[in-house]
Structures are given as structure tokens and as C-alpha cells.
Amino acid sequence: MALIQAILDGVMIGGVYAVISIGLTLVFGVMGIVNFAQAEFLMLGMFIAWFAWAKLGLDPLVGAFLAFALVFLLGLAVQHWLVRRVMRAPEVAQIFLTVGLLIVLENAALLAFGSDFRSVSTPYQTAALRLGPLFVSVPYLAAFAMSALSGLGLWWFLRVSWFGRAMRATAQDPMAARLSGIDVDRMRRLAFGLGVGLSAFGGAVILPYLTVYPTVGSQFVVLMFTVVVLGGLGSVAGAVVGGLAVGVIQSLSGLVFPIQLQNLVLFVVFIAVLAVRPEGLLGKAR
């Protein structure tokens, strides 16, 4: 029964992992750039949600929308002023731009907010639903539901809306997209904004059961990489599967290993996938 409980918990957490990692895979899919600073945008989302809770009295689940909106705008600016300019530069420059962004965001947060650990208190924080012999923690369930909601929203956006189709066209072939009258730069801005916004949204919805501090992003780096590599870098559907898989793996490994070593287990999975199927579990060989 502990096993089923662990799998259930894993799916709940994994849903959130999917959403925070979609941004990484979306940006890579559209631009071919790995945003090494992705986890710092998640940290920003957590801080925005925390301040919305502390100053405005907003529940983090509501603050998540604010976090998404603000970080989305920040993402547009970062893409326009910084990332766009290295699109044609050597890979080294692309890698070090986002690494520089990581250092700047992390230390700016340290300067602005101090190194304190902050958490929120919500009425449902310790609540749990009973399903026969199983328990579902309410904060996990809420975070999962919000993630599923945003995932559905993104699916609709990418599949149905004109913007989404234009974005996928940009990912497939920027030149052809440009020739069909799509503003490729705009699509890339939008993709970057959406990508970092979703990570911020994911960060906000997990705030009820986690704490936020300026270097919290480093806790998620290996996790995000594992999710996107499992699903295939650039594949949004893959990130969903990868996120759920990572959540379950993490939860199951928690039964056996101390919590600090969960990252090690993830890393072993990560390396194994890279070794066996670098294109991801769902990916097509390129």
C-alpha cells in the first residue's frame, strides 16, 4: 500500500514538474537554446507569490497568475534585449549568456530579499483527503490541478490558436515561417515569455508546501534537466510524460533512500537516458 501511496504522491508532484520543465523544452524547441537560468525564473515566481500572499493576502494559487504575468513580461524583455542578439552567435556565447543570467538573477534576489527562508501558511496546508486506504495531500492536489489546468491551456494555445500554430511553424523552420508572413522574432519572444512564465507559475503553486529562498533554483536544476531529457529536449508532450515519470521515480526512491540523495537517483536516470536514448523516450531519432 505504501507503494501505491508513493506512486500517487509521485504523480501529484510530477504534474508540477511537467509544468516547470515545459518552459525549458519550449524555448529549446523554438530557438535551439538551453536556458540555464530557467530555474531562477521559477524562484522569481515563488517570490512573487510569496509577496502577493504577504502584502496582498492572496493565496499562492491565485498569486500564481500574477507570477505568470509578471515573469512573462520579464521574459519578453529578456528575449528582446538579450537572447535575440545571440541567436546567430556561437553556442559558447549562447550558453554563457543564460549562465550569466542565472548568476545575475540569483544574486539580485539575494540582494533584494536577503537569504531568509520564507514560507506561506494557508488553511489547507496540512489537510488531506481520504480515498479508502490512501491519502491525498490537499496542497499537492491543488498544485497538481493548477498544473494540469495550465498544461491544458498551453495545449489549446499550441494546437488551436493561430499564435500557437505560428510558434510551432517557427520551431519547425524559421525561414519558411518568415516566408509565410510570421513575425519570427515575435514568436520567439512569446515562446520565451511563455516558457519562463510557466516555470514561475509552477513555482507559485508549489509554494504552499515548500519554502522560497534566493538559491532555491539550484534544487530544481537537475530535476528540470532530467524531465526534459526523459521526454526529449524540445518536445512539450515529452515534458509532461517526463515530469510524471520523474515525480514517480523521486517518490519511489524516497521509500528507499534518504531525501538528500533523491537528486542522485534522478541523475542516474538522467545519465542512463542520455546514454541509451539521447533523443528522449518519446523522441524520434534525429
Binding site: 529549446f28 535551439g32 537554446i33 538551453v34 540555464f36 553556442e91 549562447q94 550558453i95 539550484s218 536544476v221 537537475v222 534537466f225 532530467t226 531529457v229 529536449l233 537528486n263 542522485l264 541523475f267 538522467f270 545519465i271 542520455l274 539521447p278
Partner: peptide
Amino acid sequence: GHYFALATLAFGEV
């Protein structure tokens, strides 16, 4: 390229 950088960064972090 990016893939190698990502894998090695993860290794160091772990």
C-alpha cells in the same frame, strides 16, 4: 553543444 553542457552541469550539481 548545449546537450553536453547541460549533462556536465547536472553532473557537477549532483
